[in-house]
Design a protein around this nucleic acid. Sequence first.
DNA 1: CTTGCGAGTGAATCATTAG
DNA 2: ACTAATGATTCACTCGCAA
Lengths: 375, 375
Amino acid sequence: MVESRRGASHRTPRLTPNNHESARILVGDCVAQMATLPAESVDLVFADPPYNLQLQNDLRRPDDSKVDGVTDDWDKFGSFKEYDEFTHAWLKACKRVMKPSATLWVIGSYHNIFRVGAILQDLDFWILNDVVWRKSNPMPNFRGRRFTNAHETMIWASRDPGGKGYTFNYEALKAGNDDVQVRSDWTFPLCTGDERLKNSDGKKLHPTQKPEALLARVILSASRPDDLVIDPFSGTGTTGAVAKKLGRRFIGFERDPDYAKAAIKRINAVAPLEAPSIAPFVTAREAQRVPFSALIERGFISPGANLVDSKKRHKALVRADGAVMLGEKVGSIHRIGALAQGLEACNGWTFWHVETRKGLLPIDDLRAKVRAEMN
Amino acid sequence: MVESRRGASHRTPRLTPNNHESARILVGDCVAQMATLPAESVDLVFADPPYNLQLQNDLRRPDDSKVDGVTDDWDKFGSFKEYDEFTHAWLKACKRVMKPSATLWVIGSYHNIFRVGAILQDLDFWILNDVVWRKSNPMPNFRGRRFTNAHETMIWASRDPGGKGYTFNYEALKAGNDDVQVRSDWTFPLCTGDERLKNSDGKKLHPTQKPEALLARVILSASRPDDLVIDPFSGTGTTGAVAKKLGRRFIGFERDPDYAKAAIKRINAVAPLEAPSIAPFVTAREAQRVPFSALIERGFISPGANLVDSKKRHKALVRADGAVMLGEKVGSIHRIGALAQGLEACNGWTFWHVETRKGLLPIDDLRAKVRAEMN
DNA sequence: CTTGCGAGTGAATCATTAG
DNA sequence: ACTAATGATTCACTCGCAA
């Protein structure tokens, strides 16, 4: 059950694995609240900080109706310096609670994203991508003085330089994208219709509610089921709702009790998806390691057999110990494959084949059979 | 004639209005060279500074070939601090020579653009838009560890807060975009093929040459004929070549004499377009609907070409910005098509044709090709 | 003439584990 | 800490040449 807590009186949250209901909103300043979390406990951060918009005057549409812009107090900063200090503080708080393998996403517009990005770099985060959210239905530029502001920018960064060990569900994303790598520009419509939370008067409850589709792609890209996701500026709880739906644990931080209340109600109404639909995609990269010798031990290949490449230009002899020979040279399937081609490196699993009655069979297919046996 | 000058010995450049051949490259450090220009003399700045890529190791494709990355000395900086100082210096030099009405464009990637943007704001520039160049054919992510880095970011800023009085050819852009406002995300292919300058050995002359279509849209958006355009990091002279073609004056700055030499040769070979195809126009606001300028940007139709109807009863002149002219009247393909027939409305896509060796071709067929390119 | 195929390439912060 | 070994990995487009 989602619960709301005020103040910093509680200790370490009790977060049990496989409890998909462990989602909560902590009401208060995110920097103070994050201090209550243990260090290195978080897998993924998504942050939608105030944009520091600096709207000077009312903006009016051609029919003279007033555009309902962001004029809330939480978006007021006196200067870039003040905004930078604020940004520095919450990013540093995030860094403390992030696991070494964690990554962080921040969304913003040209008003604030350059400051956020520079501070991220100054704090020794490591930018992995900037990702553009292209809005399929942006608000036009009513004055005709600029290009239609049709996108927002997200920065995806790992905690430390080099950025190793982070989660990126490459194969799953690619499979869902007609087998083509997902690019750094994503197209989604704005959050409208039933998804947009409304006040009792029918007005939008929050000025910058993000679409769930955007959060779903973020969470599916960079986390796994049961991971802990946090959102320092939780607002109406979009991140929490999507995290819960996708079987991730969640902690949100929100200063405004009304937003927090709405978020709790919203998250409570979410039913997590069934496990199979969110189960991690087991890929070759993540699968249990099967050494080449296992193919011999299991009888899929006999010592003394020959390996050939797909065009039968090279032939290697299989030794009983799992090494292979090409002429006088002995080595791994990878090293000998590289040697055969005169290359620095080679994936022996895809390079080498065995001859069968039905033609050439990549030894990678035999590895798949061994893996199946092991499960 | 384009000329190259070394050092800072010359005085104020003599730049006569309506002299479309007044394009020059000054060889040397751009900050030192800009100091030789008078204050408040420039209308438009386009800058493609070093990105500070910080590449560590070499990268290989799946076929083990090596990726030809940017390893030039001019992209090496010791630290963010050093890069920031460099950025601060050239932006400040730009600000001095900019007219109060001038605007500046900077292009970059996530490696540097956040620092550039923050420094722009610190220097009291006023960001008008960030514009995303979506690459239709980016290099993939070979290791499958990130999203395909498929875009670069441009920042468009006016010299002073409030940003009043700057040039934005809203009507022409809209007319060239089938009567829809141009958005902040632009799609263009990389600079390849004949447009890409090559060394005598057939290798690319410059590692980061930008496509002319991108520069054309920048210059058409934010300047007028005879305006003075400068480029602090002129490289192979793309900005100068496009500026000359579009009837703008140009001064480029380039440290490397070899690049400067190639740029001069390139710019000398450019013939300015005829005046009618680039003349600014002002119309009442019009409303209608679908991108004609893409056909020009992609090279399917040349500025100055004629469109005709299927029976060759009407003929319209194609402008560089994507609007078309019939007599004195300027507007979108739809509006001008309607005007030609004395009708209220017209679908310009099916009405207008281009003449080819094989006969008349509806421009809608060309649109289909562009669509195919963009997918 | 067109079509097909193989090679090449573009601003890229592009790995993890065992020893 | 480091080195060495293992192993995973590409999209859109252009050009040249063969068929």
